[in-house]
Design a binder for these strands. Structure first.
Lengths: 235, 235
DNA sequence: CCACCGTAAGTTGTCAGACAATCTGACAAG
DNA sequence: CTTGTCAGATTGTCTGACAACTTACGGTGG
């Protein structure tokens, strides 16, 4: 009973990533979305049975997806107490920012030796962000996404997939933290000039100077750290 | 329900971590051990049913443990083809070393501002390594372990748990690579002086000089990279 | 002899149901 | 008001099953 479907149908590239991904990764993606958009507040317990019924999948599948979330730092698991959406603490925000500084700083220092392709990518992500800010049409989540993509593109200057992957994980943690206060700082995205200033310093080749890109980045991330912690009402 | 146990209950060290861990983490630990000790060669397919029977656990449990291994980079999963022990390629070794350089470099630069506790820990891990090298009694795996612990202690100078965690993941990938050739370079551990030289530079406060600790570290890691790649017969 | 194709076996991805261990909260007893 | 106990809920794990997919084998035709 196998109607010989398109037999040698060497699909060019299947369809887009979200289409034929495994059930586990689809569930994980859905959970991530819900967390980032604030549908699931920090501290919310993620009950396996409820999620399984709600998403129409089995409990083991939900369990695996939850394991992924935990590994990404978006949720925490305690033995016999289950998985809950992670609660951003001041200490973890500080740590994320310190780690960001190390990774992005390495990217900034690699500006001169990174290829033209990667430098061009930094310029593109910058424009994608600034134009969205000034266009005013993009949603808050979209602005966040583009903002953080710019910072990831800095890490891409290192040319190291592993460092980029680490940076993306850090950005996900920040997205989680920001999702807790999205309504508070919807208008806090006046940082377009700041980012442009950073790239101008890079284009000018001023990296290690006392007012160079490296120091500029340090202050930029420090400011973001304070801002996030205050917005969360921590400390 | 709290029998007033030893009041100042500074438990010496409780029992060892492996005691009451979940079944999944015990299986993951066992698999890691097998990979690091070369029982499972690179490229070996990890069949779920075989592992479940061999370890006396169920298939879902094995699946979760395999997911952990994959997340740690010790194995790779391909859809419908299963999980296999990761194969270190020249490109990934280079990437791991580049990432190590960024993380450990950040630690070295933080030497002056890191607390005395962390500086002391670097000295201790150094002695633990050098004494093991010169004592000659430790096994090859034990030498590797102490060697990499020293490098992790450098990252600990940053005081960032996330950076330390990333470093540990990188070290695990290196341990996997080294496990493929453990018999080849059992005698390659004459690096005690090199590490002592690094710490001496740090103690002297010479970090950013042309022959300072930072540059010293870069060469040290570069050497390790070349050595590992050659030992693996890659490139 | 070689290339091609269809079938069969094996493995993974996912589901359903079940049970013991453990945690939580409420209720009764002192 | 504290303490002990119990029932409900949830997780951790197991067993069994089935569809989808990959791979290997053997037959067929050039």
């Amino acid at each position: 009973m196998s109607p010989s479907a398109p037999t040698s149908a060497r699909a060019p590239f299947a369809s887009l990533s979200v289409e034929h991904a495994s059930t586990v990764s689809r569930v994980a993606t859905e959970l991530r979305r819900a967390v980032f958009e604030g549908e699931l507040e920090s501290g919310t317990p993620l009950r396996e049975i409820a999620l399984a019924e709600s998403l129409g999948v089995s409990r083991p599948t939900v369990r695996e997806a939850l394991t992924v979330l935990v590994a990404e730092g978006l949720a925490t698991r305690e033995p016999h107490r289950g998985v809950t959406v992670a609660t951003p603490r001041a200490e973890s925000v500080r740590d994320v920012c310190r780690a960001r500084w190390v990774l992005e700083g390495a990217g900034v220092r690699a500006w001169a030796t990174a290829g033209d392709v990667r430098r061009q990518r930094v310029r593109e992500t910058l424009v994608a962000y600034t134009s969205a800010v000034r266009g005013g049409a993009a949603s808050y989540e979209e602005l966040n996404e583009r903002h953080l993509s710019f910072h990831v593109s800095l890490v891409e200057l290192t040319g190291s997939p592993r460092l980029v992957q680490m940076a993306e994980a850090l950005m996900d943690e920040l997205k989680l933290a920001l999702a807790q206060v999205d309504r508070l700082n919807r208008n806090a995205h006046n940082e377009a000039e700041s980012h442009e200033g950073l790239v101008e310093l890079l284009e000018a080749g001023d990296v290690d100077g006392p007012n160079g890109a490296y120091e500029f980045l340090r202050r930029h991330i420090d400011d973001a750290e304070v801002e996030v912690i205050e917005a969360l009402g921590l400390e």
